[in-house]
Amino acid sequence: MSVRGIDRAALLGDVVRAASWLASQLAAARRDGASCEVHCATVLGLDVAALTLRDPAIAGTAQEAADTFAGALRAGGGQPRDAVAFALVAALHPGESAFAPARGALTAAAHGVRPLEAGPDACAQVLGGDDAALAALCDRIELRGVRGNLAARRELGLALAARAFSAARAPTRSAFAMHVLRAAAGARLDPATTAEALAFARRQQRVDGAYGHLPVSTQTAGDLRAAFHLPWTVAALRLVHDALAPVPLVRAKTSRQPEGDSPSARK
Protein backbone atom coordinates (compact mmCIF):
# COMPACT_ATOMS: atom_id res chain seq x y z
CA MET A 1 0.00 0.00 0.00
CA SER A 2 1.25 3.48 -0.71
CA VAL A 3 0.94 6.22 1.88
CA ARG A 4 0.25 9.67 0.49
CA GLY A 5 3.02 12.14 1.19
CA ILE A 6 5.49 9.54 2.42
CA ASP A 7 8.66 8.52 0.62
CA ARG A 8 8.34 4.76 0.74
CA ALA A 9 11.96 4.13 -0.27
CA ALA A 10 13.21 6.38 2.52
CA LEU A 11 10.92 4.65 4.98
CA LEU A 12 12.23 1.22 4.00
CA GLY A 13 15.77 2.58 4.27
CA ASP A 14 14.97 3.51 7.87
CA VAL A 15 13.86 -0.07 8.50
CA VAL A 16 17.14 -1.42 7.08
CA ARG A 17 19.11 0.84 9.47
CA ALA A 18 16.93 -0.16 12.41
CA ALA A 19 17.46 -3.84 11.60
CA SER A 20 21.18 -3.26 11.52
CA TRP A 21 21.03 -1.63 14.96
CA LEU A 22 18.95 -4.52 16.29
CA ALA A 23 21.54 -6.99 14.93
CA SER A 24 24.20 -5.11 16.89
CA GLN A 25 21.98 -5.35 19.97
CA LEU A 26 21.70 -9.08 19.43
CA ALA A 27 25.47 -9.36 19.33
CA ALA A 28 25.74 -7.33 22.54
CA ALA A 29 23.04 -9.43 24.22
CA ARG A 30 24.90 -12.62 23.35
CA ARG A 31 28.18 -11.20 24.54
CA ASP A 32 27.01 -9.55 27.75
CA GLY A 33 23.82 -11.40 28.55
CA ALA A 34 20.45 -9.68 28.59
CA SER A 35 17.06 -9.89 30.20
CA CYS A 36 14.21 -11.86 28.65
CA GLU A 37 12.54 -8.53 27.94
CA VAL A 38 15.45 -7.41 25.80
CA HIS A 39 15.69 -10.74 23.98
CA CYS A 40 11.98 -10.77 23.25
CA ALA A 41 11.96 -7.19 21.93
CA THR A 42 15.04 -7.83 19.79
CA VAL A 43 13.47 -10.89 18.19
CA LEU A 44 10.21 -9.08 17.52
CA GLY A 45 11.95 -6.03 16.07
CA LEU A 46 14.04 -8.15 13.71
CA ASP A 47 11.03 -10.23 12.68
CA VAL A 48 8.98 -7.14 11.90
CA ALA A 49 11.86 -5.62 9.92
CA ALA A 50 12.26 -8.87 7.95
CA LEU A 51 8.53 -8.99 7.17
CA THR A 52 8.41 -5.33 6.14
CA LEU A 53 11.44 -5.66 3.87
CA ARG A 54 10.79 -9.29 2.88
CA ASP A 55 14.47 -9.79 3.50
CA PRO A 56 15.67 -13.39 4.05
CA ALA A 57 18.98 -12.24 5.55
CA ILE A 58 17.23 -10.24 8.26
CA ALA A 59 14.81 -13.14 8.75
CA GLY A 60 17.87 -15.32 9.38
CA THR A 61 19.15 -12.85 11.98
CA ALA A 62 15.70 -12.87 13.58
CA GLN A 63 15.86 -16.65 13.76
CA GLU A 64 19.26 -16.43 15.46
CA ALA A 65 17.80 -13.94 17.93
CA ALA A 66 14.88 -16.29 18.56
CA ASP A 67 17.28 -19.15 19.22
CA THR A 68 19.18 -16.98 21.70
CA PHE A 69 15.94 -15.96 23.38
CA ALA A 70 14.79 -19.57 23.57
CA GLY A 71 18.12 -20.52 25.11
CA ALA A 72 17.71 -17.83 27.75
CA LEU A 73 14.20 -19.07 28.56
CA ARG A 74 15.40 -22.65 28.89
CA ALA A 75 18.16 -21.46 31.19
CA GLY A 76 15.47 -20.10 33.52
CA GLY A 77 15.60 -16.47 32.45
CA GLY A 78 11.99 -15.80 33.47
CA GLN A 79 9.17 -14.59 31.22
CA PRO A 80 8.86 -11.30 29.35
CA ARG A 81 6.43 -8.87 30.95
CA ASP A 82 5.08 -7.77 27.57
CA ALA A 83 2.65 -10.63 26.96
CA VAL A 84 1.57 -9.36 23.52
CA ALA A 85 5.17 -9.12 22.30
CA PHE A 86 5.91 -12.61 23.59
CA ALA A 87 2.76 -13.98 21.99
CA LEU A 88 3.72 -12.38 18.68
CA VAL A 89 7.19 -13.88 18.86
CA ALA A 90 5.65 -17.26 19.62
CA ALA A 91 3.31 -16.91 16.66
CA LEU A 92 6.16 -15.88 14.38
CA HIS A 93 8.28 -18.89 15.45
CA PRO A 94 5.75 -21.71 15.64
CA GLY A 95 8.36 -24.45 15.79
CA GLU A 96 10.12 -23.18 18.92
CA SER A 97 9.02 -25.19 21.97
CA ALA A 98 10.44 -22.67 24.46
CA PHE A 99 7.78 -20.21 23.33
CA ALA A 100 4.96 -22.68 23.98
CA PRO A 101 3.63 -20.83 27.07
CA ALA A 102 2.82 -17.82 24.90
CA ARG A 103 1.40 -19.77 21.98
CA GLY A 104 -2.27 -19.28 21.50
CA ALA A 105 -2.34 -16.16 23.68
CA LEU A 106 -3.23 -13.92 20.75
CA THR A 107 -6.02 -16.19 19.60
CA ALA A 108 -7.32 -16.31 23.15
CA ALA A 109 -7.12 -12.53 23.42
CA ALA A 110 -9.07 -12.18 20.19
CA HIS A 111 -11.75 -14.63 21.26
CA GLY A 112 -15.07 -12.90 21.76
CA VAL A 113 -13.67 -9.49 20.84
CA ARG A 114 -15.71 -7.59 18.28
CA PRO A 115 -14.66 -4.82 15.91
CA LEU A 116 -14.87 -1.34 17.38
CA GLU A 117 -17.82 0.74 16.20
CA ALA A 118 -16.51 4.16 15.15
CA GLY A 119 -18.70 6.96 16.44
CA PRO A 120 -19.08 9.56 19.16
CA ASP A 121 -18.83 6.98 21.96
CA ALA A 122 -15.55 5.63 20.65
CA CYS A 123 -14.15 9.16 20.28
CA ALA A 124 -15.18 10.00 23.84
CA GLN A 125 -13.47 6.80 25.02
CA VAL A 126 -10.28 7.70 23.16
CA LEU A 127 -10.14 11.25 24.49
CA GLY A 128 -11.44 10.49 27.96
CA GLY A 129 -10.03 7.11 29.00
CA ASP A 130 -6.81 6.52 30.89
CA ASP A 131 -3.71 5.08 29.22
CA ALA A 132 -4.56 1.48 30.13
CA ALA A 133 -8.08 1.77 28.74
CA LEU A 134 -6.76 3.35 25.56
CA ALA A 135 -4.11 0.67 25.14
CA ALA A 136 -6.83 -1.99 25.47
CA LEU A 137 -8.94 -0.16 22.91
CA CYS A 138 -5.99 0.00 20.51
CA ASP A 139 -5.40 -3.74 21.00
CA ARG A 140 -9.04 -4.31 20.11
CA ILE A 141 -8.69 -2.19 16.96
CA GLU A 142 -5.60 -4.16 15.95
CA LEU A 143 -7.23 -7.52 16.64
CA ARG A 144 -10.59 -6.92 15.06
CA GLY A 145 -10.53 -3.61 13.19
CA VAL A 146 -13.08 -0.81 13.06
CA ARG A 147 -16.59 -0.63 11.68
CA GLY A 148 -18.26 2.55 10.51
CA ASN A 149 -18.61 4.91 7.60
CA LEU A 150 -15.83 7.05 6.22
CA ALA A 151 -16.67 10.09 8.35
CA ALA A 152 -16.88 8.14 11.60
CA ARG A 153 -13.61 6.35 10.86
CA ARG A 154 -11.87 9.64 10.10
CA GLU A 155 -13.26 11.09 13.34
CA LEU A 156 -11.84 8.14 15.28
CA GLY A 157 -8.49 8.53 13.51
CA LEU A 158 -8.28 12.18 14.49
CA ALA A 159 -9.14 11.39 18.10
CA LEU A 160 -6.41 8.73 18.22
CA ALA A 161 -3.94 11.16 16.63
CA ALA A 162 -4.78 13.85 19.18
CA ARG A 163 -4.35 11.45 22.07
CA ALA A 164 -1.08 10.09 20.67
CA PHE A 165 0.50 13.46 19.95
CA SER A 166 -0.59 14.76 23.32
CA ALA A 167 1.10 11.77 25.00
CA ALA A 168 4.22 12.21 22.86
CA ARG A 169 4.90 15.59 24.44
CA ALA A 170 6.56 13.54 27.20
CA PRO A 171 9.55 11.63 25.73
CA THR A 172 8.97 8.72 28.08
CA ARG A 173 5.53 8.16 26.53
CA SER A 174 6.58 8.09 22.90
CA ALA A 175 6.39 4.30 22.63
CA PHE A 176 2.80 4.51 23.93
CA ALA A 177 2.10 7.23 21.38
CA MET A 178 3.45 4.99 18.62
CA HIS A 179 1.16 2.18 19.78
CA VAL A 180 -1.85 4.49 19.45
CA LEU A 181 -0.69 5.80 16.06
CA ARG A 182 -0.07 2.22 14.91
CA ALA A 183 -3.66 1.29 15.71
CA ALA A 184 -4.91 4.28 13.71
CA ALA A 185 -2.57 3.59 10.79
CA GLY A 186 -3.23 -0.16 10.72
CA ALA A 187 -6.98 0.38 10.65
CA ARG A 188 -6.71 2.83 7.71
CA LEU A 189 -8.82 5.40 9.52
CA ASP A 190 -7.47 8.59 8.01
CA PRO A 191 -4.74 8.87 5.34
CA ALA A 192 -3.40 12.16 6.73
CA THR A 193 -3.05 10.64 10.20
CA THR A 194 -1.16 7.67 8.73
CA ALA A 195 1.22 9.99 6.89
CA GLU A 196 1.76 12.10 10.03
CA ALA A 197 2.32 8.96 12.11
CA LEU A 198 5.01 7.75 9.74
CA ALA A 199 6.63 11.17 9.61
CA PHE A 200 6.59 11.23 13.43
CA ALA A 201 8.37 7.87 13.52
CA ARG A 202 10.90 8.97 10.90
CA ARG A 203 11.81 12.02 12.97
CA GLN A 204 12.68 9.80 15.93
CA GLN A 205 15.38 7.76 14.20
CA ARG A 206 18.95 8.14 15.39
CA VAL A 207 22.06 8.03 13.26
CA ASP A 208 22.79 4.46 14.37
CA GLY A 209 19.36 3.24 13.25
CA ALA A 210 17.71 3.06 16.68
CA TYR A 211 14.67 5.20 17.42
CA GLY A 212 14.05 7.56 20.29
CA HIS A 213 15.97 9.86 22.52
CA LEU A 214 17.11 9.69 26.09
CA PRO A 215 16.35 12.18 28.81
CA VAL A 216 18.97 14.91 28.95
CA SER A 217 22.16 13.97 30.85
CA THR A 218 21.49 10.25 30.70
CA GLN A 219 24.43 8.00 29.88
CA THR A 220 24.04 6.37 26.48
CA ALA A 221 25.25 2.89 27.23
CA GLY A 222 24.24 -0.50 28.54
CA ASP A 223 20.79 -1.16 29.91
CA LEU A 224 19.65 2.39 29.31
CA ARG A 225 19.90 1.88 25.57
CA ALA A 226 17.83 -1.24 25.99
CA ALA A 227 15.38 0.49 28.28
CA PHE A 228 14.78 3.50 26.06
CA HIS A 229 15.81 2.83 22.48
CA LEU A 230 14.77 -0.79 22.16
CA PRO A 231 11.06 -0.33 22.95
CA TRP A 232 10.93 2.82 20.80
CA THR A 233 12.62 1.01 17.93
CA VAL A 234 10.28 -1.97 18.07
CA ALA A 235 7.28 0.35 18.38
CA ALA A 236 8.45 2.37 15.35
CA LEU A 237 9.08 -0.74 13.27
CA ARG A 238 5.65 -2.12 14.10
CA LEU A 239 4.09 1.21 13.18
CA VAL A 240 5.85 1.23 9.80
CA HIS A 241 4.89 -2.40 9.17
CA ASP A 242 1.23 -1.96 10.03
CA ALA A 243 0.95 1.25 8.02
CA LEU A 244 2.29 -0.53 4.91
CA ALA A 245 0.92 -4.06 5.32
CA PRO A 246 -2.58 -5.13 4.23
CA VAL A 247 -3.53 -5.96 7.83
CA PRO A 248 -1.86 -5.30 11.20
CA LEU A 249 0.62 -7.93 12.32
CA VAL A 250 -1.45 -8.91 15.36
CA ARG A 251 -4.55 -9.53 13.27
CA ALA A 252 -2.60 -11.46 10.68
CA LYS A 253 -1.33 -13.74 13.42
CA THR A 254 -4.81 -14.39 14.81
CA SER A 255 -6.43 -15.06 11.44
CA ARG A 256 -6.91 -18.55 10.04
CA GLN A 257 -3.92 -18.54 7.74
CA PRO A 258 -1.42 -21.34 8.27
CA GLU A 259 1.06 -20.48 10.98
CA GLY A 260 4.40 -19.22 9.75
CA ASP A 261 3.07 -17.48 6.61
CA SER A 262 4.14 -13.94 6.03
CA PRO A 263 1.46 -11.64 7.40
CA SER A 264 2.46 -8.87 5.09
CA ALA A 265 2.92 -10.25 1.61
CA ARG A 266 3.29 -7.32 -0.75
CA LYS A 267 4.23 -6.77 -4.33
Partner: peptide, 18 residues
Amino acid sequence: LARLRWLVAVCGRMALLE
Protein backbone atom coordinates in the same frame (compact mmCIF):
# COMPACT_ATOMS: atom_id res chain seq x y z
CA LEU B 1 -4.43 23.70 3.18
CA ALA B 2 -4.90 19.95 3.58
CA ARG B 3 -2.20 19.92 6.24
CA LEU B 4 -3.62 23.03 7.96
CA ARG B 5 -7.03 21.38 8.09
CA TRP B 6 -5.56 18.23 9.63
CA LEU B 7 -3.59 20.29 12.14
CA VAL B 8 -6.66 22.28 13.17
CA ALA B 9 -8.68 19.07 13.62
CA VAL B 10 -5.98 17.35 15.68
CA CYS B 11 -4.83 20.38 17.68
CA GLY B 12 -8.48 21.12 18.47
CA ARG B 13 -8.88 17.67 19.97
CA MET B 14 -5.58 18.02 21.82
CA ALA B 15 -6.75 21.33 23.31
CA LEU B 16 -10.01 19.65 24.30
CA LEU B 17 -8.11 16.78 25.89
CA GLU B 18 -5.74 19.15 27.69
